[in-house]
Design a protein around this nucleic acid. Sequence first.
DNA 1: TTGGAAGTGAACCGATCTGTTTATACGGTG
DNA 2: CACCGTATAAACAGATCGGTTCACTTCCAA
Lengths: 208, 208
Amino acid sequence: MNRFADDHKAIHRGRKYDQVLAGARQVFMADGFEGASVDEIARVAEVSKATLYKYFPDKRVLFMEVANTECQRQASRAMDSIDRAAPPREVLGQTGRHFLGFITSKFGQQIFRICVAESDRFPELGRNFYESGPAVMRTEMAAYFAEACARGELAIDDYVMAADQFGELCKADLWMRLIFGVIHEVGAADIDRVVDHAVETFLARYGT
Amino acid sequence: MNRFADDHKAIHRGRKYDQVLAGARQVFMADGFEGASVDEIARVAEVSKATLYKYFPDKRVLFMEVANTECQRQASRAMDSIDRAAPPREVLGQTGRHFLGFITSKFGQQIFRICVAESDRFPELGRNFYESGPAVMRTEMAAYFAEACARGELAIDDYVMAADQFGELCKADLWMRLIFGVIHEVGAADIDRVVDHAVETFLARYGT
DNA sequence: TTGGAAGTGAACCGATCTGTTTATACGGTG
DNA sequence: CACCGTATAAACAGATCGGTTCACTTCCAA
């Protein structure tokens, strides 16, 4: 992200800002919050520790900055490639595969891991992540459900609850074993299988 | 300092074992894994650090022991309080309420938090937790489903998948917002509402 | 009575970490 | 050229932590 505010003041101010942020992102993703040391971040960012501390008052703020930018980036990329006019079975399948693909990716896992772990000490971090991540999908899906119900394609009493249920159904079997290291990879076949089951169960309740 | 008067009921071997475990449980739950210091655990357990290290080779094993005992306690308690011969709607409701009650409890959340966070650096920790926690419920439920299907009360093709789906359905709406600090408490009414929705959706697909 | 196992408290070790400071170098501008 | 903001490397400060060691006490049982 560019520092627009600095543009009119001085080119040199904040040259290394993005470098620091990129290095921090990499190291935090690799080692978590506690596991990441500021020295390592500075080394990976190819920046001196003094410079790092000139831009960020402490490690916490640096991490929050990384987490925020990442969450927003993922959120904007979340619901865009879905045709809301298609039949529900197809919309649900596409959405489920996209969603499950993300949360089973290395990156999705790690961001979840860190946010879960640190949302105890930094409550606003967890809240921020939820609002700009899961909550977005939730409201988007709820909105779609309202449309589909109006078209008579679905019969849902509680849109938000239904959206959450579908999201949770997509996690069955794979996600927990992945997050706890019981399995290490999921193939497209696994994702399809779980999503198909999720769609089937969902439509058994809410289909028309 | 002998603050405790005569301990007339002296057990020779492992007198302090449970003390250590109880103290560890308390401190881990309050501070997380990294946040908890062995000194603090020893102090809270009212035990010397040397004694602690006589029972447990290191901090990680100590935590795993805490997590294991708690998971087993919860799993056995859950299975004992359920009448597997009752109608599916009732069995599912009881199981769901118990399960959701545990994972939304302060202890359940914290255990999950720590295991998620540390299962990256200590894979056996996550695996161990999964096997002695979620996996137990999964297989137990799958076994029940097999019985119920044999009685014609349910119609399930994949018992394990169905068990996982039900578990995930129970998390809808509440669990994620809790784990990320969006909400801080859940009442019995919330739990009932979510479990009712879960049972309804589950039976729409698998009921007879 | 005495041996030995269990427990204690405190010092200690080595490692790591965050955050600061210092002395120095680079690079563009007046 | 001199000036000044930015950057650097490296040492440093202050603290914590996991884990070990040791001299000493307690208490039961043979």
